[in-house]
Simulated scan of single mutants.
Amino acid sequence: MSSDPLSEPELEVLNDTASQFHLIHMIGAITALAVLSAIFAPLIRALDSEQATTALILVGVQLATATGVFYFGSTWRRRALQGAGTRLGQSFMGSPSRQYLVSTLLIVGALTLCLFVVLSSLRNSKESFQREHLLAIYQSFIVTSLSVFLLLHLTWKRHVGVVEFFEHGVALTPLKLTRWESVDVQPQENQEDTIQLIVTTSRKKTHLITVLVRVSPELRSYLLKHYSSADYRPPLKKRTLFDR
């Protein structure tokens, strides 16, 4: 394995460093809020006092949750990827257009659920602030947390459900880096766009977990060249991420 992959020219083609949160993202968020406010302001003014109070409480819960999840998610990822080095690329599921479509639908669907929770709760606003409203607050918290976490993928330039490859490790999830010392890359037979990631875990016992991912030809060639062990021997029984 190469100890200094940055010295090799082919990495310049694969350099896909994830960006951090910038002013442009804040401007986009403020613009989106302004547009939504302009759209729903007439509807809010048409509500009676109790309905308006219910809507404001739920929106407040969603804004507070969004702020907290965004802060902790960004901080957690920054700490997890500290020392990860240059991002070499990421895996994909299906064609690039399909990957973007799936990610977009997930994000739009989650945001729609946030709005649905607010609107559906207004039907019960005539009743006292009891069980239905507490359930709506709980739903707002859960749905908003999911929505913001999916939206964070945009700032990370990461597709939903993929694996990221860095100079010093692999991110099987967006909030955890596994160092290359615990990962071995092997080719997948009869699938030229797929590689095997053999991950060594040591929670209670040492296990080998096999993860199959699809990558570009350039990234596949680079990973096999620098992070593949020639003396690797497959285990008698392979484990996957879903095995216990």
Rank of each mutant, 00 (worst) to 15 (best):
S3Q: 07
L11Q: 12
L11Y: 08
D16N: 12
I24V: 07
M26A: 13
G28L: 04
I30A: 15
A38Y: 11
A38V: 08
L43Q: 03
R45D: 10
R45F: 09
S49F: 03
Q51A: 12
T53Q: 08
V59F: 09
G60S: 03
A64F: 10
A64Y: 00
T67C: 10
R77M: 04
G89N: 01
F92N: 05
F92R: 13
F92L: 06
M93A: 09
M93K: 08
P96T: 02
S97E: 10
S97I: 07
R98E: 06
Q99C: 01
L113D: 08
L115M: 04
V118R: 00
L122E: 01
L122A: 01
S125D: 03
E127Y: 05
E127W: 02
Q130V: 03
L135A: 06
I137W: 05
Q139M: 11
Q139T: 05
V143D: 08
T144F: 09
S145V: 03
S147A: 15
F149G: 01
L150K: 05
L152H: 12
K157I: 02
R158Q: 11
R158C: 02
V160M: 04
F165R: 00
T173K: 15
P174H: 13
T178M: 14
R179G: 10
D184A: 14
T201A: 13
H207T: 09
T210I: 02
T210R: 15
L212E: 11
V213R: 05
R214H: 14
R214T: 14
L219M: 10
L223C: 05
K225A: 14
H226N: 15
S228D: 05
A230L: 13
